[in-house]
Design a protein around this nucleic acid. Structure first.
Lengths: 239, 239
DNA sequence: CGGACTATTGAGCCCTTTCAACTCGCGTGG
DNA sequence: CCACGCGAGTTGAAAGGGCTCAATAGTCCG
């Protein structure tokens, strides 16, 4: 059940067998979540964290006048809200973009495990730290990059993250976002997102269509998006 | 030396005397840093984290073509790079905006302390989690808010954070950013930042000038910036 | 007193948004 | 089995927020 999580953490650091067992013992209650379900709402107080096993999840926030901004895309193997272990009160909504499978880790149990396994604690802490590094890249994109650059960067980042959990090989990966979803990630209007996708295709860099991203020119795409994977913390090759 | 840090952490959660002593024992080597000094560079591997005692610090990143985006403003009492405890390799530059005083916590010592004090570990972890929550608000601003809204939000957030460490009272606070600095935070051009400051003044909401922000209409400013301090995690009133 | 940095203001342009119309694919119900 | 509805995608045209270029002041410090 937790293979993706383990695969991801093993990109960061060595995980011993005892630690793997401790993690496995933490996760329980596998559940299906339908596409479109908002399963955690801003302001909720959580007593457990949710691990995404399968599917795509977004964390987003709405402004009073209806504008919506996606804060982060969660992929299989990610805790969608590990930060709630320390934060308790969640500051944004969380919804399933596609049909998902999730499971849970009770905060009480995490506290027990972290008291016993200092190294594992650091790795989990690191995982929230890398979430923050991904936030920072989003800040770079929204604050300083143009529309095509943002899209190019997002394609590269998503490929890299999916590859870390064994969900991308070759030059393509499954990407179940509509153009509306995508526009809320990129901070663009839907219309302009459409034109930006076309520009990426016409430049011969990548195609984004029918639930799939296909990268045609990796070097060109990374250069356009100023993408350097260092911030993803994958010091070790995925198995 | 660590009063501001303790004040900040006490807004989050109870800190016992033993924990306070442990923290005090961690911090050493008080140093002055001159305005404009870049004291940590992207790609460095750190063996200690830096606590900001006095002054303002920015964490920023440059794009190849010269565009610069500020990722985060660090204020007194903040660790400017506690995330380097888990991340080791820093993914952005860090520089002093004003003359600063800093001190250091060796990662080895943090590891020892966190192995001994699980609750204190969670509070430090929480502190990096709240940094991430601040990142998320920046994502909202850059992705979905207009220029005036961004500035209004930033004024509110900075006031609230400074208040938590005893550096803001009444309706004003010291704010040593030039308009260039500010434009790099807000993701705007310098010229437009200037006009935006003027708009905020003409609307009678706040003045940003001569190293000081003065808030004229708190409710109006918070409404314009859609500011809700919940994400700052200050469950307890500052002393 | 000079030089460098900072702030201010005008003007024109451009990237992105908004409004709007139209197509396509798909599932459902009459 | 086809009509209908609806969400998703595509494209055109015009408006607008923010950018760039440029020139002028103000301010601080050596």
């Amino acid at each position: 059940m937790i293979e993706r999580l383990i695969a991801k953490l093993r990109c960061y650091d060595k995980i011993g067998e005892g630690e793997e067992r401790a993690l496995a013992g933490l996760i329980e209650g596998e559940t299906r979540v339908k596409r479109g379900t908002v399963f955690i709402r801003e302001g909720e107080r959580l007593t457990r964290s949710t691990l995404l096993l399968k599917g795509f999840v977004i964390r987003y926030q709405d402004l009073p006048d209806g504008r919506r901004q996606t804060l982060e895309l969660s992929l299989p193997g990610d805790f969608v809200d590990l930060h709630s272990f320390t934060l308790k009160r969640i500051d944004h909504d969380i919804a399933a973009l596609s049909d998902c499978r999730v499971a849970f880790a009770a905060h009480e149990r995490i506290a027990e495990v972290t008291a016993k396994f200092p190294h594992l604690t650091r790795v989990l802490w690191l995982s929230t730290t890398i979430d923050a590094a991904i936030h920072r890249e989003r800040i770079m994109s929204l604050g300083a990059r143009t529309a095509v650059e943002r899209l190019a960067h997002l394609c590269c980042e998503t490929y890299w993250r999916l590859r870390g959990v064994g969900l991308a090989e070759g030059d393509a990966f499954a990407f179940p976002l509509t153009q509306i979803n995508l526009s809320e990630v990129l901070g663009l209007s839907m219309v302009h997102t459409n034109r930006t996708i076309r520009e990426l295709r016409e430049r011969g860099l990548a195609t984004v269509a029918r639930g799939e991203v296909r990268i045609a020119d990796w070097d060109g795409l990374a250069a356009l998006g100023q993408f350097d994977p260092a911030y993803l913390g994958q010091h070790r090759e995925p198995r």
